[in-house]
Design a protein around this nucleic acid. Structure first.
Lengths: 144, 144
DNA sequence: TATTGTTATACTCTATAACTATA
DNA sequence: TATAGTTATAGAGTATAACAATA
């Protein structure tokens, strides 16, 4: 940094670095919170993401895309969710395709998990309405 | 939601839910970005977190605490970083304790990774200075 | 031939429990 | 006895490659 000259360049650089650190810490916190909520439902984080995604039935490759992982992993994931009685495979019209669909028990579990994710977020607790609006705007820009 | 009555309750609930979703998406993005930067250095995300943490030498249990995992995992992690030539074990004054210390190559890699994490963040690119200050304030409150 | 899902394989991360060396 | 690290074991997530069934 000492080679960069201007004071404002230097401070904006370290400011950006600190902001990155903060964001990583918040991301870590969000990850931990989510893992805790998943565990309360007896699920790993990836299983929880899968169950939340399955509000509508999804092909296995669709789930792979959502989870951003190779499609070959979905076989085992679906097996474990099936063993837990949360998911069923339903063959599609194109008989190569299998849809994953929540069972009744899976739907119940998903509903509870989803509401806990919505309520249990650190965000809801620690920010007032104005701050939440501000944050939503900023997050929109980050995701744009 | 239709059983909740007041409009403001309803909208603040769905607002909180949307905000949670946004935060999870940002966290996911941050996670993906970080994994990509780690991979550019030939590291897994956990290995990258370890290397970044080792700016100062750390005991193995200290690293376990930082990574929020059981201490038994650090043996293998340290082995892999050692095999990669990035880390050395140094026995402490209390001869039960081993410090993990970056090698010269590890230090070089850490420096590059750290600067890419700082610069490569989605944050720096997409927000102006005012927005970054706002975001920093809000993240502080989330982490409080 | 191309696509969907499965299987086989290998590596990493993770936890628990039993162990060694040291304090 | 207590602590730091290791080893053994097991389960889960991840990728690549080869395969079967279907289109």
């Amino acid at each position: 940094m000492k080679y960069l000259g201007g004071v404002s360049s230097t401070s904006s650089l370290s400011e950006a670095r600190d902001l990155s650190r903060q964001l990583l810490r918040v991301a870590e916190r969000a990850r931990t919170d989510f893992a805790g909520l998943a565990a309360e439902s007896g699920l790993t984080p990836v299983q929880a993401r899968a169950v939340l995604w399955l509000e509508q039935p999804s092909t296995m490759s669709g789930l792979a895309e959502h989870l951003a992982c190779d499609a070959s992993n979905i076989t085992g994931l679906a097996d474990r969710l099936t063993d837990a009685g949360l998911v069923e495979r339903v063959t599609g019209a194109d008989r190569r395709v299998k849809f994953l669909q929540l069972t009744g028990r899976g739907t119940l579990l998903r509903t509870g998990l989803a509401s806990r994710v919505a309520r249990g977020s650190t965000v809801t607790a620690k920010l007032n309405p104005t701050e939440r609006r501000q944050l939503a705007t900023l997050l929109d820009k980050l995701l744009a």
